[in-house]
Design a protein around this nucleic acid. Structure first.
Lengths: 335, 335
DNA sequence: AACGAGTGCGGAAACGTTTACACACTCTTT
DNA sequence: AAAGAGTGTGTAAACGTTTCCGCACTCGTT
């Protein structure tokens, strides 16, 4: 699978030096109009395509972007990767994908490989809010990097993610309309900024809307965690009017478990999710959730990355994108 | 993000030529024991790591494996990618990921880029049973390639996937035990081998078990298709005893839609899925489905690929892995 | 008429490896 | 004692680009 036709051959056939051929093809100045024309034609005839490896060696850049996620099998991350891959491709980059499985050591290891491979930029969903700061410290300062979905505590790179505050506000407005007086929280622990922020927003907004907080459970974003939350809530007392969950996965895990214990949603308790996507639409009941603007996140992340790669310097940016409320049956029949 | 320390520096510090240094590090013969020791120590001290780009240019291989899937946002493919990424990494390869979105043109375009990038192998889930033969024709004969999950009609590369026949047999044995007398099918069209095979198996096995086939619907593997199937079945007459679906997505889409029309599962009709995974476990009702041996598929695919890369020649292989039956509530309460 | 600036092109170096080849040396074999 | 077979090491070429630099030439300006 070696390059069939090299620049040397193109140059030879066009009767010019490889220097001129290179300039003609790459659109660099100091080449005459007709020369450009001639070389281009020959190149097209021969089906020449520049060898990315040779170019990378010479230029020190590869038109490759490395991405690290903590768990590809998590639907939300899969969607994120899908959106980013498309966006990167549109911008002319290939995607080098790695899964950290949530381990810091894996994260640093894969980041190192990315460095060796001379990726032009890095997209990362940090495994841990604090520990990942160390992983990212291995990246040279100013290297095009963007954190997606979750941020690190100290702003060490550009960040693009959903506006958790706005999302929770939308949810509480809705719950308020539904006359909810008591709420419980089933979310994630402090390992991720999303875990922290959604939790803080929950408390603040429950207070602001005068709702009583009956119980809280914090694990991770998985369905198993949702099930565990259900058990916890059932043990600590009577169910509240509504349960706010940190992700759709948690919500369905929780609903599923409540169901096993004979409690129905929205009959016995209202439930909300966070993320949106296919799961929310097809689950029974369908989920009232906060719909993440995934394509916007992807587009924003890539454009941020590209601007950095083009030398765009300046202070670290933080881009929070507004989500939308998606109504489902889990907070009552849709009117 | 350039390599900080090169082989030249290591050689200089060790007081040897770069040739010897290279041989010492790569474990090639014709170097003395103590020299290997010396160079290795110096390399470690300096934190030297070989530059994959320079090596790729020289050797013509990159320790990169390209993978193409038709839709990363499809949960099953996401899981497959996750499993393969892990397996590849274990074998010392990085994953270059591309999404064809099911389009042949995208497929050939991305394959071409893979070629330019000198990937050492290709893993592909063909977009189309027949059209993808042409895409794959662009790959030089004998180039390490493996089709996963779906095969092309003509065997043009090694294939690893689930044993559809076995899977469907497991399902029908189960349905037979449940005294099912009439069945309907909601599966995918002829674009993929899985679509074809599961359909053929369904017909064959329904016949063998003496079940009446009430209706059939064939779209794609999505939940939308499942919903459409539900509508179709409801229109064509009374519901059968059981509905066999071509994927879990179809199953949940179908159940969801049946629910909207007031029909319950397993109360009014039994439903089976195909694939297994989180969705099947948490849906209400949980799904009786055929659990794909994803890790085995991934392991097999990579080992097949690696053996080809090591020069393993020989006839094209076809590896069908046995799935297992996973019981859920959708075919009746679990005893 | 001489000069400087600008333009078009080619030669060759450089990116960091791996490896073919040559050389020197040590044993073993005749 | 000469030849042959290893063994350890170094020199240099090669992979395919991009680009620095130098040369030749054409203008427009003094």
């Amino acid at each position: 699978m070696k390059p069939t036709v090299t620049l040397t051959e193109v140059a030879a056939k066009a009767g010019v030096s490889i220097a001129t051929a290179s300039r003609a093809l790459s659109g660099k100045p100091r080449v005459s109009r007709e020369m450009i024309e001639r070389v281009r034609t020959v190149a097209a005839e021969l089906g020449y395509r520049v060898d990315p490896i040779a170019r990378a060696l010479r230029e020190g850049s590869s038109r490759l972007v490395g991405m690290i996620v903590p768990g590809l099998d998590i639907p939300y991350f899969a969607q994120l990767v899908a959106a980013l891959e498309e966006e990167l491709n549109r911008a002319g980059f290939e995607l080098l994908l790695a899964d950290s499985h949530g381990f810091i050591e894996e994260e640093v290891r894969r980041l190192r490989v990315f460095g060796d491979r001379r990726v032009d930029g890095i997209i990362i969903v940090p495994a841990d809010r604090t520990a990942s700061i160390q992983s990212l410290a291995n990246i040279p300062a100013g290297f095009p990097t963007v954190e997606v979905d979750r941020a690190t505590d100290r702003p060490v790179a550009d960040f693009v993610g959903v506006d958790n505050t706005r999302g929770m506000e939308l949810l509480f407005e809705h719950l308020s309309e539904r006359q909810v007086a008591s709420v419980a929280f089933a979310g994630a622990d402090d390992a991720s900024t999303n875990g922290v922020e959604r939790w803080e927003c929950f408390n603040r907004l429950a207070g602001r809307h005068g709702m009583e907080v009956s119980a809280t459970y914090r694990g991770d974003f998985s369905t198993q965690s949702g099930a565990a939350a259900a058990e916890h809530l059932l043990q600590t007392g009577p169910l509240p009017d509504a349960i706010v969950c940190g992700s759709d996965q948690i919500a369905v895990g929780l609903i599923s478990r409540l169901h096993k214990h004979g409690y129905g949603v929205p009959g016995d308790v209202l439930v909300t999710g966070f993320d949106g996507g296919e799961l929310a639409d097809i689950f029974l009941p369908t989920l009232t959730t906060v719909l993440q603007p995934i394509s916007s996140i992807a587009a924003d992340a890539v454009s941020l990355l590209v601007s950095r790669m083009e030398g765009g310097t300046g202070t670290i940016r933080r881009s929070l994108l507004a989500p939308t409320l998606q109504l489902g049956e889990s907070t009552g029949t849709i009117s």
